[in-house]
Write a protein that binds this DNA or RNA. Structure first.
Length: 596
RNA sequence: UGCCCGAUGGUGUAAUGGUAGCACAGCAGAUUCUGAAUCUGUUUGUCUAGGUUCGAUCCCUAGUCGGGCAGCCA
């Protein structure tokens, strides 16, 4: 992409989960460390998922293990293949060449096989690695591929007298569950015979009952303080086609039943999830332990999810922004979705560094968006090609340069590079500068161009402002200056110091491009703190202008990252840009420490 | 008013019985053909009360505050 050196890799992270994994590795508890990233395909991945992805894949790569991508698709009424596609794309982009070698997939269409472990039947599913098995048709794991096996496990639980079919209505099920501070009541169907339970469960599967008529429940204890242990539902009836299994099933396992078993079947060792699942852990363990499984069991570990300031990550609110057309879609560059972040021009490496850098703890906290922005700037600073572009142009005429003369000046592509390269930029009598870089009545400590003042045109020479031309309304339309050609690089006055250096582009050579100036979507640190988060939408989160760009930018490619000098970092828009009709997105501004 | 989890500068985190450190943000200065980057310096912290100990951010007890849990969602 560029010859610039990427930012140095951060030291290996350490946190309480990695400590646990390290201990397990030391005691050789598992043959290999296997984690998983299990999104439900019912929405787009966002920056919060990025933290989870980096944690799970990070642990896998640090331990020579693997991390399975698994669609947690046990609820057909909410899920869709559209999301499966976007999730795969986002994960692939994020882990890039950082952890792609750990990415676990399965053979296309593969479902678990029955094997014998210690003389006991066992379900397993072999993993494949798209990074090194390119000729094989592979796909992510799907919890729905295990429906047959999960059903078998349910039958096993029934046979052990540890699960029963319950006829309570949804409302009654709620009532019988009690409350956190009040014990529940046993279901009247709790003590059905194993035979009756088996018969009823088979008939549930066969589609004999309508939605909501019956459920399969674990038989635990209705008086336990943890409500998730009060005979939790294992299966519900849903006469709905599934995006992956079609109309094969009309009963679907609940998250709690499917998740631990999916983990087990895939041979997951460390099942890492967010804090709200902490109270589910006893159930996760109960199911696995009561099935008498022959292999080592996976265990669940919880961490606090990422809460970034100035962003909204709630799926419901994200959908609202999309549906109300407050943004252009799920990949709007202002959204904290991974697709939006990617389209904005943020390198995967920068997102990763942020997601890893925030750390892993067990307490909720809000991460200042400035930390994210710093990670983005820092990465971009080291890789972005410097270019000259003017976003709000005003014409400057250099009266002592003849019309028609073109002076080629050398401009550095990236001063951060160990071996900086240069390019030629045309410099002529008429140039555009940024309107902001001229002040007829300058505030104190204003370093830029002012009447009678001098400023350096970067890579070219120092100019002096002689005259300000205004229109009838008093607006400045042109600035007339004298160029000190001896102050060019290598010239006798090249060492002359002026306080300000500004960017410019030759009017005759400039190319026009649409430039989308993106800013934070929300002005408030906690957009939804005061009720209606849409009230906090930043009206200037997108300002579209026509910019004047240096001619070399006509050949910009999608992969390149640019710094428009003194303005910020820019990237071609992946959707709307076309040759001859360029569209640039501002990823982020440069840090601005000049007190306004 | 049940159970579970947690609490370190403005923010995010490290220190697992022995000098409270790092990053971001802030401030001051140096430097600069980007008011960027870089460099230097710097302000601000262990929730409270007891206990154990030569010594406690760390272990124990109580309190305070915060979060989570009562979907046939995940």
């Amino acid at each position: 992409m560029t010859d610039a050196t990427p930012a140095a890799p951060s030291p290996a992270p350490s946190d309480f989960i990695r400590d646990i994994v390290a201990q397990h590795v030391a005691e050789k508890r598992y043959p290999q460390i296997v984690t998983r990233f299990p999104p439900e395909p019912n929405g787009y991945l966002h920056i919060g998922h990025a933290k989870s992805i980096c944690l799970n894949f990070g642990i896998a790569r640090e331990n020579g293990g693997q991390c399975n991508l698994r669609m947690d698709d046990t609820n057909p009424t909410k899920e869709d293949v559209e999301y499966v596609e976007s999730i795969m794309q986002d994960v692939n982009w994020l882990i890039g060449d950082w952890a792609d070698h750990c990415l676990g997939f399965k053979a296309h269409g593969q479902t678990p096989v029955t094997v014998s472990v210690n003389g006991q039947p066992d379900f397993q599913i072999p993993a494949h690695f798209p990074a090194r098995e390119k000729s094989v048709a592979l796909e992510p794991f799907f919890a729905s591929d295990y429906f047959d096996q999960i059903f078998e496990y349910a039958v096993a639980l029934i046979k052990k007298g540890k699960a029963y079919v319950c006829d309570l209505s949804p409302e009654d099920t709620d009532k019988y569950r009690g409350a956190p501070d009040k014990p529940g009541t046993d279901s009247p169907y709790r003590n059905r015979s194993i035979e009756e339970n088996l018969d009823l469960f088979m008939r549930m599967k066969a589609g004999e009952f309508p939605n909501g008529a019956r459920t399969l429940r674990a038989k635990i204890d209705m008086s336990l303080p943890n409500v998730w242990l009060r005979d939790p539902l294992l299966y519900r009836i849903r006469h709905t086609a599934h995006h992956h299994t079609g109309d094969k099933w009309c009963i679907y396992p609940m998250y709690d039943f499917a998740h631990c078993l999916s983990d087990y079947i895939e041979g997951i060792t460390h099942s890492i999830c967010t804090l709200e699942f902490e109270v589910h852990r006893p159930l996760y363990d109960w199911i696995l332990e009561n099935l008498g499984l022959p292999r080592p069991l996976p265990h669940q570990y919880e961490f606090a999810k990422l809460i970034p300031s100035h962003m909204i990550v709630s799926k419901r609110k994200l959908i609202h922004l999309v549906n109300e057309k407050l943004v252009s879609g799920w990949d709007d560059p202002r959204l904290p979705t991974i697709s939006g972040i990617r389209r904005r021009g943020v390198p995967a490496c920068a997102l990763r560094r942020f997601a890893i850098g925030v750390g892993v703890t067990k307490f909720d906290s809000m991460t200042d968006i400035a930390v994210y922005e710093h990670a983005v700037r820092d990465e971009l600073n080291s890789i972005a090609l410097r270019r000259l572009a003017v976003v709000d142009p005003i014409k400057v005429v250099l009266t002592n340069i003849p019309a028609g003369e073109t002076i080629e000046v050398d401009a550095v592509d990236n001063p951060q590079s160990e071996t900086p390269t240069t390019r030629k930029v045309p410099f002529t009598r008429e140039v555009f500068i940024e309107r902001e870089d001229f002040a007829e009545v300058p505030p104190p400590k204003y370093f830029r161009l002012k009447p009678g003042g001098e400023v350096r045109l970067k890579y070219a020479c120092i100019i002096k402002c002689d005259e300000v031309v205004k229109d009838a309304a008093g607006n400045v339309v042109e600035i007339r200056c004298t160029a000190d050609l001896d102050s060019r690089a290598g010239g006798p006055n090249s060492g002359k110091k002026v306080k300000g250096t500004i960017h410019w582009v030759s009017a005759a050579h400039a190319i026009d491009a649409e430039v989308r100036l993106y800013d934070r979507l929300f002005t408030a640190a906690e957009p939804d703190a005061g009720g209606d988060f849409t009230k906090n939408v930043n009206p200037k989160s997108l300002v579209t202008v026509t910019g004047k760009l240096e001619p070399s930018l006509a050949f910009a490619t999608q992969e390149q990252r640019f710094q428009f000098e003194r303005l910020g970092y820019f990237t071609l828009d992946s959707k709307d840009s076309a040759p001859g009709k360029l569209v640039f997105n501002r990823t982020i501004t440069l840090k601005d420490t000049w007190a306004k």
